[in-house]
Each structure stands twice: as C-alpha cells, then as structure tokens.
C-alpha cells in the first residue's frame, strides 16, 4: 500500500513518541501517505489504521478535521491562496481572480489537464508578506500579477520536466 521509503519515514516519525502512543504518529502518517499518493484514499486510511492499531474511523475523523489533507485527487500543483484579513487588505481577492482567469477554473476546481487546483485558504501565517500563496512546500509572497504569471510558467515548466 505504501512504499518502503514512506514506511521508513513513518517509522522515523514513530520513534519520536512513547512506545504506547502509536496514535501520535497519525498526522505524520497521513501526510506521508498523501505525499506519496497525492491524496488520501479510503484504502490508504484503512491501511494506516491497521498500521497504527487504531479504529479506521479515528483515522477518518482526523483526515476530515485537518485542512491539509485531501480526500479527493487534486491537481499536481495545489495553489492555496491565503484569503484571511491581512492578505485580503492587500489584494488577495485580485490574486484569486487573476489565477482563476489564467487557469480557467473557479476556486475549489482543478484544471482539465490535472496540473492545477486552485483553492482559497485561511491564514497561512505570512501576513507581513501579503498577498501570498502556498504551492507544495513553498510560500510565494508579495504577489503581483507579474509574479503570478511567472510562477505559473515556472510550475508548468517543472511539469514538463517531469514528463
């Protein structure tokens, strides 16, 4: 169900917690599984439940509670535009609209080529660098239309490299 690499990473995370607290590694295990598979399928959540020896419903509870988990497939690049107040005051709505126009999708949707999912999210804790968005592990800050276009081009280029 999960690669050796992912299992080894889960085991490394597991070592942080006391022997009788396997459940503590749940958030990490879900993250690692999602990094490998793109989203959390029912099958992988059930697998993690078995791995940790906890009821599947507890895995599902956590997976639906935390906003970073995707229970449905998403595009290769998930563009998470912060729309909370400091970003809002600095034009986050325009950022969202610009991306929406460029990609031809509304927030919450994925482009037909499966490359981008556009999302508006709540505060990402980079308020002084507003407006900003997160793609994967990276924050892109002080966004302008130009920097957004450059970002899209860069991400498209990366995807070409992969292909």
């Amino acid at each position: 169900m999960l690669s050796e690499k992912s299992l080894a990473e889960i085991a490394r995370e597991r070592a942080k917690y006391p022997a009788d607290q396997a459940r503590s590694v749940l958030l990490a295990a879900l993250r690692i599984a999602q990094e490998e598979q793109g989203y959390l399928s029912d099958a992988v959540m059930e697998y993690i439940a078995g791995l940790l020896g906890i009821p599947a419903i507890q895995v599902y509870e956590a997976a639906t509670f935390y906003s970073m988990y995707d229970l449905q497939p998403v595009g290769r690049h998930k563009l998470c535009v912060c729309g909370s107040v400091s970003c809002f005051l600095n034009g986050s709505d325009a950022v969202l609209q610009h991306l929406s126009e460029r990609l031809g999708v509304s927030p919450g949707e994925t482009t037909a080529d499966g490359l981008f999912t556009l999302q508006e999210v709540e505060c990402l804790g980079a308020c002084k660098d507003a407006p900003m968005l997160q793609v994967g592990d990276h924050y892109y800050e002080n966004l302008t239309q130009e920097s957004l276009d450059a970002l899209l081009a860069k991400l498209r280029g990366e995807s070409d490299d992969v292909r």
Binding site: P55, I57, E61, T64, F65
Partner: peptide, 10 residues
C-alpha cells in the same frame, strides 16, 4: 468497545 461511529469534519 469498538469505535464505529465518529464525528467527522470540523
């Protein structure tokens, strides 16, 4: 003794 129902979502 078996947890089947849960409160999902937020």
């Amino acid at each position: 003794g078996i947890m089947e129902l849960g409160a999902t979502g937020r």
